[in-house]
């Protein structure tokens, strides 16, 4: 696996987040590089989701800085992040259960007919279906039906496929995946990891949160370990040994990057 660090596309500097007395993020630093799959690991409650949510505009940090393409930015909502090509699949699935696959893939960025009708916002379902069919093929995501069937009626794995495909379709800079394989069988997990790989190869920085160590070993170019709202280790796949990783997560061993 190549560990050559690409350009740093998104950076967290000293991000902090408190929930009352709970310190979810106690000053976190992170560098996300293009072309790299980063595994973000740590025990339950370590602050992984919190970090990702801050970097994808879903929550506001209390302090610290977010740097995108070398410039400090403010994210006023997920909308802001998405406009910058920063996409996320959330741990708690963010799908519209009663809508079909096409509507979900294009949720919030529907293609509408142009010309005089444009202000009316009339959907161009045919164009959306055409592009989605293409995109899903390219990503290797298989779904039973693109139109007419609400995604809420699909299996957990298929729904996860929709969520992953949606984020992957639009990510140009960063793709965050918060436990995308948590509910999946072996084959679907494999497919999701493949998507992560392919998206990284296209020059996107991919951040994968997971508790499944074999997945980390299989796909990650870099591994970052969080504990109690802090980064305790940041290493390349080459430096990585699984037993050491588990020790770090559990706190038996102090990492070099406290």
């Amino acid at each position: 696996m190549s560990t050559a660090a690409g350009e740093v596309v998104l950076e967290a500097r000293g991000l902090r987040k408190h929930y009352g007395p709970v310190v979810a993020a106690a000053g976190m630093d992170l560098e996300i590089r293009r072309g790299e799959v980063m595994a973000l690991v740590g025990d339950n409650g370590a602050g992984k989701s919190t970090l990702v949510k801050m970097l994808s505009g879903a929550i506001r940090p209390d302090a610290g800085e977010i740097v995108h393409r070398g410039r400090a930015i403010q994210l006023h909502g997920p909308h802001d992040a998405r406009e910058r090509g920063i996409e996320t699949t959330y741990q708690d699935l963010a799908l519209a259960p009663n809508r079909d696959v096409i509507a979900n893939l294009y949720l919030g960025r529907e293609i509408v007919r142009g010309g005089l009708l444009k202000p009316l916002g009339i959907l161009d379902r045919r164009e959306m279906t055409r592009r989605a069919t293409d995109q899903l093929s390219r990503l290797g995501v298989r779904l039973p039906a693109l139109t007419g069937t609400p995604v809420g009626r699909m299996s957990g794995g298929q729904q996860q496929g929709v969520a992953v495909a949606r984020a992957a379709s639009w990510a140009t800079d960063v793709l965050f995946m918060d436990e995308p394989t948590a509910a999946l069988g072996v084959r679907q997990s494999e497919a999701v990891l493949q998507v992560a790989r392919r998206i990284a190869q296209s020059g996107v920085g991919v951040v994968l949160i997971t508790h499944i160590m074999p997945h980390v070993m299989e796909v990650a170019d870099r591994v970052v370990v969080l504990r109690h709202g802090r980064k305790v280790a940041d290493m390349t796949a080459a430096e990585l040994r699984q037993d050491r990783l588990i020790a770090l997560m559990a706190g038996y061993e102090e990492g070099e990057a406290a």
Binding site: P78, Y90, P97, L107, L123
Partner: peptide
């Protein structure tokens, strides 16, 4: 049935948080 508005109304009623996260 035919507009972005309508599509978004269904999405909001089905899962408001998801619609917001999706940028609706």
């Amino acid at each position: 049935r035919f507009t972005r508005f309508g599509s978004n109304v269904y999405a909001i009623g089905g899962n408001l948080a998801a619609a917001r996260l999706a940028g609706v």
